[in-house]
Computed example of a mutant assay.
Amino acid sequence: MDIQFILIELYEAGVLESHMQNLKPLTGGTSSEVVVVMDGTRPRYVIKQNDPAIVKAEAEFLLTYAQIEKLSRVIYVDSLHRYLVYAFKPGFTRQYSEGNKGDLLLSLATEVIAHYKSLGEEREYGYSDHPFVEWRDFLLHRTKESEKIIQDVLPPENHRFVHTLVAGSPQRNLKYLLHGDFGVHNFVFVENGTLTGIIDPDPVVGEPLYDLIYAFCSSPDRLTIDTILPAVETLRPEMTGEYELNREVLQGLYFRIATCIRHHPGDLGQYTEAWNYWLNRVR
């Protein structure tokens, strides 16, 4: 959709003031078309276009958790879900500083994940456009997709072991609306390293530990039990059920290794070292 037509709609709806005509495109890992609306020299709003199903899912997530300060504040959602507008989050993405991962995970657990809401039985697991009856089915799908990428980076017995772990996952009936792409690449920091925002949700219905482990595995530093355990222990029992952290992390790390091979091959050595560490903890 032409951005000028969007601007006209937003002016007519009273979302934008007439003097807000200067636009600045945003680039990054997102598949969306994203521009920032400037108020003079100050970034004010973000207009994000994407497939309507994706826009609808992102808007639902942000509106459901409007009270979470770290998430983007929705200003306007197009009735046909062609785009949405949210307030600009000041700071920098891809500015994660290694060394404070434990504190970052604690902040994510207490300020974001702790406020996730349980969903009704009618909702299915996974993505809205690719639902699954059980959570383990979603995890098995991700496992199979990851194996195609990892191939001989890990030995065949490791692939079989992960499949066995995932297939044996207990059905805990925990249905929460999750961010789904909860990694350091979507975290906004200010210059002193403080986390100020979380952007670009790819919403998934699933178990809250999924998001926390996703964040933990999203950078190759400090991938040890003492880094993540304090954050996990802050979550309420109804959000975790009877979990086995070693197994849960190993699954998340398997998914991350596949992502690493595709997008960050330089980190593979650190991830395979972490893989062996967690594999030894599970066996």
Results as ranks from 00 to 15, higher is better:
Ile75Val: 15
Glu111Val: 01
Tyr83Asp: 02
Ala66Glu: 09
Arg222Trp: 11
Lys24Asn: 05
Tyr45Gly: 04
Arg256Pro: 01
Arg42Trp: 02
Phe92Val: 13
Ala215Thr: 05
Pro43Gly: 08
Tyr271Ala: 05
Gln67Asp: 15
Ile198Leu: 01
Phe216Lys: 10
Gly14Phe: 10
Ile228His: 04
Phe187Lys: 02
Asn280Ile: 06
Gln151Phe: 12
His264Tyr: 14
Pro90Tyr: 09
His163Met: 10
Gly183Met: 02
Arg256Asn: 02
His159Gln: 08
Pro156Ser: 07
Gly14Thr: 12
Ile68Asp: 02
Gly91Lys: 07
Leu84Gly: 03
Thr93Tyr: 01
Leu229Gln: 14
Ile3Arg: 05
Arg82Gly: 14
Ile113Gln: 06
His81Asn: 15
Val36Gly: 01
Ala87Phe: 02
Val249Thr: 05
Tyr86Phe: 15
Asn173Tyr: 07
Thr27Tyr: 10
Leu165Lys: 00
Asn246Glu: 12
Asn186Lys: 03
Gly102Met: 10
Gly197Leu: 00
Arg172Leu: 15
Glu69Trp: 00
Asp211Asn: 11
Leu253Val: 06
Asp103Cys: 12
Thr259Pro: 00
Glu191Asn: 09
Pro230Tyr: 07
Gly206Glu: 04
Val190Trp: 00
Gly168Asp: 08
His19Gln: 13
Lys175Val: 08
Leu23Glu: 06
Val74Tyr: 12
Arg42Gln: 11
Gly193Asn: 02
Pro90Arg: 05
Gly193Leu: 06
Pro52Ile: 10
Asp137Pro: 01
Asp129Tyr: 13
Ile3Leu: 15
Val36Arg: 04
Leu71Lys: 01
Val74Asn: 12
Arg281Leu: 15
Phe61Val: 06
Val35Tyr: 07
Gln171Thr: 14
Ile225Val: 13
Leu178Trp: 04
Gln49His: 09
Ala231Glu: 03
Val36Ser: 06
Asp129His: 11
Arg42Ser: 09
Leu235Ala: 10
